[in-house]
Every structure is written in structure tokens, then in C-alpha cells.
Amino acid sequence: MAKIEVPDDLVALQREALAAAADAKAAGYSAEGWRPWIEAAAVVQNAIAEHAAATGQNRYELEMAVKAAAREG
């Protein structure tokens, strides 16, 4: 298996999504309150898919590597 290259910009996007998730969960459920989390998650998913396609990496493996890197730092 090839080494997965994890760009810093994808890690930053994932961290933003994690922060938005924490904010949404802390506030309790409301569609409006969770919208930033949903939008941040969509942004990171699209960025991962685009990067994987552009570099020929496996999208799933890239996503898992991005999530792991975001949790580390």
C-alpha cells in the first residue's frame, strides 16, 4: 500500500469540522444550530474527494488519514 500524503489544508478543514461538531453538540439539537457542522463536514468531504481524485489516492484511506492527523494535533 502506498503512503498516504496528508496535506495540512485538509487537516485544518477537518479540525474546523470537529470544532463545529463540538459547538453543535454542546448547544443541543436545532437544525439552525447544527448547520455550521453540516456545512463544515461537506466542505471537508468535498476537499478530500477532490484531492484524492487529483492525486490518485484512495479516497477512503485519505479520509481516515486526515481524520487521524486532525485528532493528533
Rank of each mutant, 00 (worst) to 15 (best):
M1R: 06
M1G: 10
M1K: 07
M1D: 02
M1S: 07
A2Y: 10
K3Q: 13
I4L: 10
I4G: 09
E5L: 05
V6Y: 04
P7L: 09
P7V: 10
P7F: 11
P7T: 11
P7I: 10
D8Y: 09
D8L: 11
D8P: 07
D9W: 11
L10H: 08
V11E: 00
A12S: 13
L13C: 06
L13E: 04
Q14W: 13
E16A: 15
E16Q: 15
E16D: 12
A17P: 04
L18K: 10
L18M: 15
A20W: 07
A20P: 02
A21Q: 14
A21P: 01
A22C: 00
A22R: 12
A22W: 10
A22P: 07
A22D: 06
A24D: 05
A24F: 05
K25F: 10
K25R: 15
K25G: 06
A26D: 08
A26Q: 04
A26T: 09
A26H: 06
A26M: 04
A27N: 09
G28L: 04
G28F: 01
Y29E: 00
S30I: 14
A31T: 10
A31C: 00
A31L: 06
E32Q: 12
E32Y: 07
E32I: 12
G33W: 02
R35P: 00
P36Q: 06
P36H: 05
W37I: 05
W37V: 08
I38G: 01
I38V: 13
E39G: 00
E39S: 05
A40T: 00
A40W: 01
A41M: 10
A41N: 15
A41I: 10
A41E: 15
A42V: 07
V43P: 02
V44K: 08
V44P: 03
Q45I: 04
Q45F: 00
Q45D: 13
Q45E: 14
A47G: 02
A47F: 09
I48F: 00
H51N: 04
A53I: 03
A54I: 02
A54H: 03
A54R: 06
A54S: 12
T55N: 02
G56Q: 12
G56E: 05
G56M: 04
Q57Y: 00
Q57A: 12
N58D: 15
N58R: 02
N58S: 07
Y60G: 08
E61Q: 08
L62E: 01
L62K: 05
E63Q: 14
M64N: 07
M64V: 14
A65I: 11
A65E: 05
A65Q: 08
A65D: 08
V66H: 01
V66K: 03
A68S: 13
A70E: 06
R71G: 04
R71E: 12
R71K: 15
R71W: 12
R71N: 11
R71C: 01
R71D: 05
E72L: 13
E72S: 14
E72A: 15
E72T: 13
E72C: 08
G73V: 10
G73N: 15
